[in-house]
Write a protein that binds this DNA or RNA. Structure first.
Length: 335
DNA sequence: AATATCCGCAACCGCTCCGAC
DNA sequence: CGTCGGAGCGGTTGCGGATAT
């Protein structure tokens, strides 16, 4: 049989930690280190679950943690990483010394997500809202139209819906646009985006990663996932078959690209290769793990490039889409 | 001044993976 | 082989302070 329960959950204290409890944890860890957390409450004289002690230590008491506000550099890095790998907060936090996954997650949910939405960028896909809407329209031929609603994430939907504080006419129009019987047809102006099967791309990443577990992959089958176009980036393994997310993210060897299918990570070698052959032709999928791009316009947004941030790249692209298809993407979205 | 609402953050919940039993 | 705990993770909740009405 298995082990006995670690604690009696009905008899342990829950809720906010007191300074006295914090002091006991700190004293215990300084003397014994972080070993078996189930023993910590008993040895430290705390009426808490070991798991709760571990969380308190890792998220708050660890001496290497920063408790000041996020810097603009950290903010940009979070946005970039979230665009590439989604809500893998622990991986993102590893790129931010002194920050925990909980810190990053809270900062994203309370600040960055809203900031992106105000800028007209869908915080899940990291695409301009206008492009997400065009994607929504371009799949209007799907048999089950009710499924189309799953393509619009809840943030975007809530942003579209008229609210008490933002009863704008455009919001109302956008909401009407999402009604299933009003999904527009783009006709001859179908934006030439090539839909990439995210499951295939990410499966390639997974299959090339011997150490990765399934928990490191996006939950594509979950209700909040997108069933066709990926909410995540289309990721190309930088160096062939051997690839590890953690090592990759902790290196500075990747370059961000924004293309009309989303955000792409490319190795510098691939970027150079693509630049050498970028003569206005589409980039189709070239071998395993290489990301397809269905247009001649490829935006290379180097994260170290001065004066042209990741967000600027998205906004530039949005402006071009609006300029190219004014009748489709004007402010009213009136079909 | 009182109440309602918003917001940020700490903590909890529930899940998965892995290894111990 | 099945059950369970430890550890880690992402999602969600609830509290308390700030702000608006």
């Amino acid at each position: 049989m298995g082990r006995p329960p670690c604690c009696d959950k009905s008899n342990v204290k829950r809720g906010l930690w007191t300074p006295e409890e914090d002091a006991k944890i700190l004293a215990y860890v300084s003397n014994h280190g972080t070993g078996n957390w189930t023993l910590v409450p008993k040895k430290a004289g705390l009426n808490r679950c070991g798991k709760s002690c571990r969380l308190r230590w890792t998220n708050y008491l660890r001496p290497d943690l920063k408790h000041d506000s996020f810097t603009p550099q950290e903010e940009e890095l979070i946005i970039n990483l979230h665009g590439a790998i989604g809500s893998r907060w622990s991986l993102i936090a590893k790129r931010l010394p002194g920050r925990t996954d909980n810190d990053v997650k809270n900062y994203w949910n309370t600040k960055l997500r809203k900031k992106l939405m105000k800028m007209g960028i869908d915080p899940v896909t990291h695409k301009p809202v206008s492009q997400v809407l065009s994607d929504l329209g371009s799949i209007s031929g799907l048999p089950n139209t009710s499924n189309q609603m799953t393509f619009v994430n809840k943030d975007l939907m809530s942003n579209m819906l008229p609210t008490k504080t933002e009863p704008s006419g455009s919001n109302k129009a956008m909401m009407e646009h999402t009604q299933e019987d009003q999904v527009p047809s783009w006709g001859e102006h179908q934006i030439p985006y090539q839909v990439i099967n995210s499951e295939n791309v990410l499966s390639e990443v997974a299959s090339s990663t011997s150490s990765s577990s399934s928990s490191n992959l996006p939950h594509l089958g979950s209700p909040k996932s997108y069933s066709c176009q990926t909410p995540l980036a289309h990721v190309a393994p930088p160096n062939g078959s051997s690839f590890d997310w953690s090592e990759f993210l902790q290196s500075d060897s990747f370059v961000w690209s924004l293309n009309p299918s989303g955000i792409t990570l490319q190795s510098e070698a691939e970027q150079l290769s693509n630049n050498s052959k970028s003569n206005g032709h589409d980039k189709q999928s070239e071998g395993s793990g290489v990301v397809a791009c269905g247009t001649s316009m490829l935006y290379q947004v180097n994260k170290q490039c001065e004066g042209h941030s990741f967000v600027d790249g998205i906004l530039d692209r949005d402006s071009e889409i609006r300029a190219a298809f004014p009748e489709l993407l004007d402010a009213s979205f009136d079909y």
